[in-house]
Simulated assay, not measured.
Amino acid sequence: MSEDFRDKIIKKSEEIAKSLGLELFEINITGPKRKKNIEITIDHPKESVSIEMCEKFSREIEPWFDSIDIPFKSYNLIVSSPGIDRALRGLKDYKRFKNRLAKFILSERIENRTVFIGHIKDADEERVIVHERDSKKDFEIPINTIKKANLEIDL
């Protein structure tokens, strides 16, 4: 599959998402040559993505897929949300999810650890401050050491 086709999907998905007050989070195209899964993950800037939002996005993009030349025999279109344990991808997300519980996996050790789970207290271009519930301590995590981060379910 060509990058050109993927770029077309991204462009159209961003256009439709914007028209619906949503954001494109991610696109994955998987599966064998003849039958692909086109997974489009959408997000809402201020609230959780509902099933209705996914359905509306799907209804908007399906006619477009039917009107273009697709480089494989058939496909399944899957539209979803990032989920409650969504990936956090940078400063924008760290600020957006301030006060939410998150898990950070680091590429370097801080206090002899590479995993921190706590509430995001603050974030700037250089660091994220995480308040760990168990130790009741704040930790400064340099942004350039974050290998992976995601929201956790806060019970």
Rank of each mutant, 00 (worst) to 15 (best):
I9W: 09
F116W: 09
P142R: 02
F65W: 11
F72L: 12
K18Y: 11
C54Q: 09
E23M: 13
L88H: 05
R127C: 02
M1T: 12
M53H: 04
I78Q: 06
E55L: 15
I42S: 00
I70G: 07
L22V: 03
E126G: 04
I110A: 07
P71T: 09
W64V: 00
T41C: 10
K121G: 07
F116A: 04
K73Q: 12
I16P: 00
D122L: 05
L24S: 05
F57L: 07
E23S: 11
I146V: 14
S81M: 10
D43Y: 04
K33N: 15
G31H: 14
E152W: 06
E140I: 01
P82R: 06
K137E: 12
E111I: 02
I68R: 02
E14I: 05
A123V: 02
A149K: 03
L106K: 09
R59C: 06
R133K: 02
P71M: 12
I84L: 15
S58W: 01
A102W: 03
V49P: 01
I110H: 08
E152K: 10
L91C: 02
F97M: 10
L101T: 01
R6A: 14
S2D: 14
R34K: 15
C54N: 08
E52M: 05
E3Q: 13
I120Y: 00
D93H: 12
I143Q: 12
L101Q: 02
N150V: 01
K121F: 03
E26N: 14
R34F: 13
P45Q: 09
E62N: 06
R86T: 06
V130E: 00
E23C: 11
L20Y: 04
I51Q: 07
R96W: 03
I153A: 13
N112H: 09
P63Q: 03
D138H: 03
E111S: 08
E108V: 10
I141H: 05
D66I: 02
K12A: 07
S74A: 15
M53W: 02
S48A: 13
D138G: 00
K148Q: 12
Y75V: 04
R96K: 15
I9S: 11
E39F: 07
K33A: 15
K148W: 08
I29H: 11
G83M: 14
W64H: 00
D69L: 08
N150T: 03
R59M: 04
E14F: 06
P71H: 11
N112G: 06
T145S: 14
R100V: 01
D122Q: 03
A123R: 02
C54T: 09
I40D: 00
H119F: 06
N150A: 09
S74G: 11
I84M: 15
L22C: 05
Y75H: 05
S58Q: 03
N112Y: 08
N76F: 15
F116I: 06
A102H: 07
T145C: 12
I9F: 13
K8T: 05
D85I: 10
A102G: 10
K12D: 01
D124W: 07
F5C: 09
F97P: 06
I110P: 03
R100K: 13
F57Y: 04
F5S: 08
N99D: 11
E132H: 01
I9T: 10
R34Q: 15
D7Y: 10
T30F: 14
I38C: 04
D4M: 13
I146F: 07
R133E: 04
S80Y: 08
K8W: 06
D85E: 15
